[in-house]
Amino acid sequence: MNTAALSPAPLSPALSVLDLVPVRTGQTSAEAVAASMDLVRLADRLGYTRYWFAEHHNMPAVAASTPPVMAAAAAVQTERIRVGSGGVMLPNHAPLVVAEQFAALEALAPGRIDLGLGRAPGSDPVITALLRSSGPTADVERFGEHVQDIMALLRHEGATIRLTSGETYPVRATPSATGAPTVWLLGSSDFSARLAAELGLPYVFANHFSGAGIDQVLALYRDGYRPSEAFPEPRTFLTLNVVVAETQEEAEARALPQLRSMARLRTGKPMGPLETVEEAQAAPLDTLGQQMVEDMRARWLTATPGTAAAELRRLAGRHGVEEVMVVPVGASREDEGMTTTAGRTQTLSLLAEALGTPAA
Score class of each variant (00 low, 15 high):
residue 285 L to A: 01
residue 257 P to F: 06
residue 342 A to L: 07
residue 75 A to Y: 00
residue 335 D to S: 09
residue 116 G to D: 07
residue 100 E to H: 07
residue 60 P to L: 09
residue 203 Y to H: 14
residue 82 R to W: 01
residue 101 Q to A: 12
residue 339 T to Q: 11
residue 53 F to T: 08
residue 275 E to N: 05
residue 54 A to D: 09
residue 251 A to C: 06
residue 203 Y to F: 15
residue 117 L to V: 00
residue 58 N to M: 09
residue 270 P to R: 00
residue 12 S to G: 02
residue 212 A to D: 13
residue 352 A to H: 09
residue 349 S to F: 05
residue 85 S to R: 09
residue 143 F to R: 03
residue 299 R to M: 01
residue 244 V to H: 06
residue 10 P to N: 02
residue 239 T to F: 06
residue 59 M to V: 15
residue 37 M to K: 05
residue 212 A to Y: 01
residue 163 L to E: 15
residue 239 T to W: 06
residue 348 L to D: 00
residue 198 E to W: 05
residue 227 P to N: 05
residue 123 S to M: 01
residue 52 W to D: 10
residue 62 V to S: 12
residue 258 Q to E: 06
residue 166 G to M: 06
residue 64 A to S: 15
residue 248 Q to G: 09
residue 235 R to K: 14
residue 56 H to K: 04
residue 197 A to N: 11
residue 182 T to V: 14
residue 327 V to A: 14
residue 207 N to Q: 13
residue 349 S to D: 15
residue 275 E to Q: 14
residue 70 M to N: 13
residue 162 R to P: 01
residue 135 G to Y: 08
residue 42 L to R: 14
residue 234 P to A: 04
residue 267 T to N: 02
residue 350 L to M: 10
residue 103 A to V: 00
residue 104 A to G: 11
residue 348 L to A: 04
residue 144 G to N: 12
residue 302 T to D: 00
residue 327 V to N: 14
residue 178 T to R: 12
residue 256 L to E: 04
residue 128 T to H: 12
residue 328 P to D: 00
residue 100 E to S: 02
residue 128 T to R: 11
residue 103 A to G: 07
residue 91 P to L: 10
